[in-house]
Design a protein around this nucleic acid. Structure first.
Lengths: 136, 136
DNA sequence: TCATTACCCATGGAATTACTAGGTAAAACC
DNA sequence: GGTTTTACCTAGTAATTCCATGGGTAATGA
């Protein structure tokens, strides 16, 4: 599976923030409950999003998280790449695993690279605003 | 990751058989050594391919495996679906996990379905004969 | 000062992946 | 008929990843 719960939760939360629209900060607890996601688990995801500058975070009462940009300025690809640490369909083409000794003669490699590009383009072509439109 | 070593090995082995062309049966041991794959591990993969009728198997001396059809009659998709047990990018859309309580209101679901279709079409459009052409 | 919030670090159970080990059954050769 | 060569079957296992959980620290506002 190419996208785990981590990435899917991140997307859901981003859509959830977009749905609420406003400038106000929403505490983690509220989002976790609304979305039915483990609060502690979501914490680590929010920290990732926050460090990358995808969301703004404020401590203390009245604090929480909020979006940094407009929903149409977040691509699904950027969020998944961040939370999943990449989007490659096979380990052959992931950067860490540059160790495939057969890379030079592998006759499947061009296929994997083409697939990766296709998936990447697909996700880069969808924004949080697009996902929001799907909701009823 | 969407495709594990199991599926990748299966593809390599099928290409390897196609490369040798002939009608003769090739023992597992020979293929495993030529491809540098664990013999025992490859065994389980070959059994899967054999049961599905992708390859012919013959016991005893002079036996082994060989392709059942022409290389251009095997799509990459059919091999991966068999060995990987499906090709879905997220668990949401896999058949076993029909349990997502949010399926009805999930605003990401159409995206996952579209992605699955795209990946499926991609792999169904490539055959073992195509992969063979890539080799130098 | 205290409640409320985000942040940080370590741990753990469950599942999956990639093998490994050891035996059984069938076919060919002597 | 016995031996070798092959495929087939069942089980186990080490390592990794996934999906959290637990407990504490730091910042902010009332």
């Amino acid at each position: 599976m190419i996208v785990s719960t981590k990435g899917r939760y991140a997307l859901r939360v981003m859509v959830s923030f977009a749905q609420r629209g406003g400038e106000e900060y929403i505490p983690l607890k509220e989002i976790a409950e609304a979305e039915g996601i483990s609060q502690k688990y979501l914490e680590s995801i929010m920290t990732t999003l926050s460090k990358a500058g995808f969301v703004d975070a404020v401590h203390g009462k009245g604090g929480g998280y909020r979006l940094n940009r407009k929903p149409e300025e977040y691509t699904v690809g950027s969020i998944l790449k961040l939370t999943e640490g990449g989007l490659t369909a096979v380990s052959c083409t992931s950067q860490g695993a540059s160790a495939c000794s057969r890379a030079e003669c592998c006759n499947a490699l061009p296929m994997w690279e083409k697939l990766d590009k296709m998936i990447n383009d697909f996700f880069e072509g969808i924004t949080i605003a697009d996902l929001l439109k799907e909701s009823k």
